[in-house]
């Protein structure tokens, strides 16, 4: 009896706490949205006011029309191409390597694998400057390759997928082998379908990681039309420092598509996050 009462009180307490935090989480977004519909003159003369007195769309039209100096939509597409390309490359590279480390026998396997794992200790800041030199030497500065290919160096994903593969019983492989399947067929027909959950996690991490990367793209991209959205918005901040409503419109143009995507795929996002804990924990 007492148990259910504390339970109900706990529920209310939890709800109260979440509501307070929820307000903190949502207010900046809402104020950003409403401000993007104000005129700059109103913003400057009125100061803080949550809703615009006059709702205007001009910030959006002005911003999207200026495709030479602030090609926000172009930046968005660039980000999308880069993030998709990175994710695909990482999925291919990682699943192939993990398969070899988990299922195939070759000389120096363990030394190689643990050697690779050990390099994870070195933080990426140490190779930042020479990596830039290598990218420019290859002529990859201001191209999508500059972001896609270096992202596939990661060892942690291989570790994650290998762990997952090791838990798949070897008898599956043997059965296929008796049927005359080659290594490649085992990989493609037997293993790959079974490791989809963990690949989903890898895909999600890679995509968001690439989408949110800031330092590296601001170093390798100097061409306005080639850069992704994150360094692009940095330029926008400088350009519209004196015009906050337009600046907000720019940030929201960058956010909204992610928002829509998230509301459609929320279930998958959260499920795979939870799954990744199972793998890591």
């Amino acid at each position: 009896m007492q148990n259910t009462r504390t339970n109900r009180a706990g529920k209310w307490l939890a709800f109260l706490f979440l509501t307070i935090m929820g307000v903190i989480w949502i207010v900046p977004l809402l104020y950003g949205i409403t401000s993007s519909f104000k005129t700059n003159i109103e913003m400057q003369s009125v100061g803080f006011r949550f809703l615009p007195i006059n709702w205007v769309l001009s910030n959006y039209t002005k911003l999207l029309a200026n495709t030479t100096n602030t090609p926000v939509f172009r930046w968005f597409l660039n980000s999308l191409v880069i993030a998709c390309g990175t994710t695909l490359l990482v999925l291919c590279v990682v699943s192939l390597s993990a398969f070899a480390y988990s299922r195939l026998k070759f000389r120096g396997k363990n030394i190689l694998f643990y050697g690779l794992l050990a390099t994870m200790m070195f933080p990426p800041v140490m190779n930042l400057i020479p990596l830039y030199k290598i990218i420019t030497t290859l002529g990859w500065a201001n191209t999508d390759w500059a972001m896609i290919v270096p992202a596939a160096t990661g060892v942690f994903n291989i570790f994650l997928v290998r762990q997952f593969m090791d838990n798949i019983p070897i008898s599956y492989d043997e059965a296929a082998r008796i049927d005359g399947a080659s290594d490649w067929q085992i990989f493609f027909r037997v293993i790959l379908p079974l490791i989809k959950p963990v690949l989903f996690v890898v895909a999600l991490f890679t995509f968001t990681g690439s989408w949110n990367d800031f330092l590296w793209p601001s170093i390798v991209f100097s061409d306005l039309n080639k850069m992704p959205i994150t360094p692009g918005l940095k330029l926008l901040q400088g350009m519209y420092a004196a015009n906050i409503p337009t600046l907000m419109a720019g940030a929201l143009v960058a956010i909204v598509p992610t928002l829509i995507l998230y509301f459609f795929a929320q279930k998958y996002f959260l499920q795979s996050m939870a799954l990744s804990v199972g793998v890591k924990g």
């Binding site: 420019t136 002529g139 500065a141 201001n142 191209t143 170093i219 390798v220 100097s222 061409d223 080639k226």
Partner: peptide, 12 residues
């Protein structure tokens, strides 16, 4: 900040 980098990169 971009001028030295872009000249050095040789592209764009």
């Amino acid at each position: 900040a971009k001028i030295p980098t872009i000249v050095n990169s040789g592209r764009g």
